[in-house]
């Protein structure tokens, strides 16, 4: 109970940070070890956009981050689910910072945005099974 109260107090203290924007960025940094956004778009903007960029266009340097825009490998939801959980090449495994629910939400988001049109629902169970 005490530890719960401390967590609650910490969360309150963070939320009370006065000058943080109250937009989708308001949820950022609420935990040092996990992402706390729940909406697919918010999750995308808080983590995926860091490498795959805001419009899913990817980026190229000495190596590259693949574009998610118009990306046919997203057709089977199991593929992005697996890559998010376990990582692949330069992509770090994110299964420890995102919950099954968050992964389902963000996979649903990338499969229906950036020119992708795979509207079949992504279930939490699919994510759980892929762990």
């Amino acid at each position: 109970m005490k530890s719960l109260m401390i967590v609650a107090a910490a969360a309150l203290a963070m939320m009370a940070t006065p000058t943080l924007a109250q937009s989708d960025a308001a949820m950022m940094f609420a935990s040092p070890s996990k992402l706390t956004q729940t909406d697919g778009k918010d999750i995308y903007n808080a983590i995926c956009a860091g490498c795959h960029m805001a419009e899913g266009q990817g980026a190229v340097g000495a190596g590259m981050y693949p574009a998610l825009a118009g990306n046919e490998t997203l057709e089977a939801a199991g593929y992005p689910i697996y890559v998010i959980i376990h990582g692949q090449k330069a992509m770090p495994a994110l299964g420890n910072v995102l919950s099954d629910e968050q992964i389902a939400a963000v996979v649903g988001y990338i499969r229906t945005n950036f020119g992708n049109n795979y509207p079949e629902e992504v279930t939490v169970q699919e994510v759980t099974d892929s762990r």
């Binding site: 960025a25 950022m28 940094f29 935990s31 040092p32 070890s33 996990k34 992402l35 903007n45 808080a46 983590i47 995926c48 956009a49 860091g50 490498c51 910072v97």
Partner: peptide, 11 residues
């Protein structure tokens, strides 16, 4: 590091 760095990376 970690979740914090990911989120700063996205800004």
């Amino acid at each position: 590091w970690g979740a914090t760095a990911y989120q700063f990376n996205a800004l």
